[in-house]
């Protein structure tokens, strides 16, 4: 799976351990050979593409005179099948070692790292927490997680806007996850692209903070549709904001009627017991 979205190149993806930032520099192997770097821009383009090309069938005759046969092959293959296969491999690895893996997705700044910091400080040893951090650049989040006390690998995607199953596969090998551990994968802050890429996680958790609009699920439905839990963060700020919790829940439920909600504040710790209960529930169901 090429981890780039638009303008990234795979060589820019790095995997680093904050304990030894220089020794874990891996180049990301990539499938697409020497494909040129191309810059993609989302642009207005109002012409449709019939993509027809008028061709004579003269070329069916080879220069030597031997005719080529035309043949239609029904593939019915998923475009993301390579990523999905790798994700299943990751899932198999997690299952074999009785690991639960959570894929944390949100827009930038909604508090993914802060939620993890508190979780590690309070439950790091109970849950045996391990973390994969995804960001375009910097080791900042990995440093925060390391200070909180959990082993962490930072993936810098370069220009890529999501993590994919191959990146997680490589990072988790570096982490050497033990049996019965809990893996938190903090995806790149982005509510669009990460929705499409299965990482092999046990559950997907979308985090929204009350400083964002309550119509986020309507604006980015795919992300809310694919998540099993929604953490509503920064509830300590509710008295100062116009965020309508009920309206938010209603919109999110319209998109995904199976989604669960937990209201939390990473600053005050409010609601974290419920979050821990949810984690325990999934750790137990993995053991069964």
């Amino acid at each position: 799976m090429c981890g780039t979205c638009g303008c990234g190149e795979d060589e820019h993806i790095t995997y680093r351990n904050p304990n030894n930032p220089d020794s874990h520099l891996h180049e990301h192997s990539h499938f697409h050979g020497d494909k040129e770097h191309s810059h993609a821009h989302h642009h207005e383009h109002d012409h449709s593409h019939p993509h027809s090309h008028d061709h004579s069938h003269d070329y069916l005759l080879k220069p030597g005179g031997g005719a080529l046969n035309s043949q239609t092959i029904q593939l019915q293959r998923k475009i993301l099948s390579k990523n999905d296969l790798l994700a299943e491999r990751n899932r198999g690895h997690f299952e074999a070692l009785n690991i639960v893996a959570f894929n944390l997705v949100s827009s930038p700044g909604s508090g993914k790292t802060a939620v993890l910091e508190r979780t590690i400080l309070e439950k790091g040893s109970d849950f045996n927490c391990y973390v994969i951090e995804g960001d375009q650049q910097t080791m900042n989040d990995a440093e925060r997680i390391k200070s909180a006390g959990a082993p962490v690998i930072q993936i810098n995607t370069g220009n890529g806007c999501h993590l994919d199953a191959l990146m997680v596969n490589k990072a988790m090998k570096d982490l050497k996850l033990p049996e019965n551990s809990t893996l938190f994968i903090e995806n790149v802050g982005n509510l669009v692209c990460p929705a499409l890429f299965d990482l092999g996680e046990t559950k997907r958790v979308v985090i929204i903070s009350v400083t964002e609009g309550e119509d986020k699920p309507a604006k980015y439905p795919t992300m809310f549709e694919t998540a099993q839990l929604c953490l509503i963060n920064k509830t300590d700020l509710l008295p100062y904001l116009d965020f309508d919790l009920e309206k938010f829940r209603q919109i999110a439920t319209q998109v995904n009627h199976h989604i669960e909600f937990i209201e939390i504040s990473a600053k005050t710790g409010e609601g974290f017991n419920q979050w821990y209960e949810w984690i325990v529930k999934h750790r137990l169901s993995e053991t069964d």
Binding site: G6, A40, L75, C193
Partner: peptide, 17 residues
């Protein structure tokens, strides 16, 4: 803008097949 990675996947799969 994940469409480019999807387009690249399409080309890879079709070339393989």
């Amino acid at each position: 803008m994940h469409e480019l990675s999807i387009a690249i996947q399409i080309v890879e799969i079709v070339e393989e097949e």
